[in-house]
Design a binder for these strands. Sequence first.
DNA 1: GAAACCTTTTTTGTATACAGTTTCATCGTT
DNA 2: AACGATGAAACTGTATACAAAAAAGGTTTC
Lengths: 243, 243
Amino acid sequence: MNNAWHKEMLAEVRAGGRISDQDIVEKVRRAVLMQRLPPDTKLPEVTLGEVFGVSRSVVRKALTRLASEHVVDQRPNQVARVRAPSIEETRETFEARRLVEGEVAAQLAGRLDAEVMATLETQARLEAEAHERGDEPARIEHSLTIHHLLAEHSPNRVLGAMLTDLVLRTSIVIALYKRPSLASCYLENDHPRLLDRLGKGDGEAARACVHDHLHSLEALLDLRPRENSIDLMSILGRTAEES
Amino acid sequence: MNNAWHKEMLAEVRAGGRISDQDIVEKVRRAVLMQRLPPDTKLPEVTLGEVFGVSRSVVRKALTRLASEHVVDQRPNQVARVRAPSIEETRETFEARRLVEGEVAAQLAGRLDAEVMATLETQARLEAEAHERGDEPARIEHSLTIHHLLAEHSPNRVLGAMLTDLVLRTSIVIALYKRPSLASCYLENDHPRLLDRLGKGDGEAARACVHDHLHSLEALLDLRPRENSIDLMSILGRTAEES
DNA sequence: GAAACCTTTTTTGTATACAGTTTCATCGTT
DNA sequence: AACGATGAAACTGTATACAAAAAAGGTTTC
């Protein structure tokens, strides 16, 4: 698994109280999102159980839920691993998110109350500041919060839930396929511009803005087909993952 | 639960061999779809275990998966029940499905190979025939097959999976909110027309066709707000949300 | 030196036991 | 007769034990 992460979790768990399967889901999801648990990391049930101080029953339930969230790959008789979506799936995920988030934004335009708009603008500002000072984890956090808030306030809760899922999945693949040369996947004015259009109530402009944003984001990734290195990597490369 | 269904399952299980959690998921999902297990039906773990001849561990896994498919409602310390989506959620589910299935149809137009098109047309014909002779279960079966095939052949597998989920959910709410006066929710020419446009390769026409179809379907339901029982239930019953 | 084979270890699959919670019916009080 | 308390039964939450499968390691053979 990942030893530094172990330690942190252990400390946190000892401090806190009882741990439920939902807590585990959230902590693992977050760790994947923050790139503390890279793709293909093994997640054995007993180890996770020790980390969180619970038995396999609880871990198992958490892993099943993480699998249905597409965060983890759970194959019969094999240890669960952090999922590593293919390049093709990455493209498809972005496309799906454009469709769904575009619609959500269009519906949301002009319907957000002042309080939420203020929170969104604060998060956009905090994101910019985090980027200024090079604090990438904080930047990701604020960026995610923005999209999460849009999903949460979607008038259509079904679409909202779908968007939450897609935001998570795109975040994972961004971490996976980010061009190594880029320090961050920050797009200077995209979020402020989107918020502006949401505030002005122009649904179609907001939709277009979301489309542009997601196309730009996708363009920051290196989605060229790997000749066969993917296969080599997953077959040869993953021996060093002790615990 | 449901005693007739019990008996059937028991017979089937004795005949077959070993049962996995995935088998249980499929059998329960199908039973819900076919209205053998009406909404709010309790699904106690031990009972299900006896029915399928497995222990609670397996049933539990199946139930959590069914919950993430939105088929079952699993609240802490309470017996799982077949989910009964609200009227509002029903509307939102239809809207989401229009968005997703419309896009899938648009992408699919002109790209379906002859074999799949033939299968689709066969299913449409079988649906019409089943309707002629008043065989509603068979009609539903064929109708579902059509939409399932579209989802399965979607070039975008992510959208395809989302569509599969939405088709399931709309089927459940159709069963729930169908006007009692209607024998069936059959729309004479919708499927053949859609297949025709898919074959002709006109994406936008196909999308429009899907939109019309789903609007018509939704219009066959009785989605007027119920005065008392449902709303009271869902409002008063919400004291124990999960964290 | 590499491939095939066998043994050992690790890890998951399933059943089961026990504890904690909810539900429901019964009984007593007003 | 309605209301609330009480206790039993039903059910879920969690831990654990054992069986089966997969992975790892080491040995032999070519």
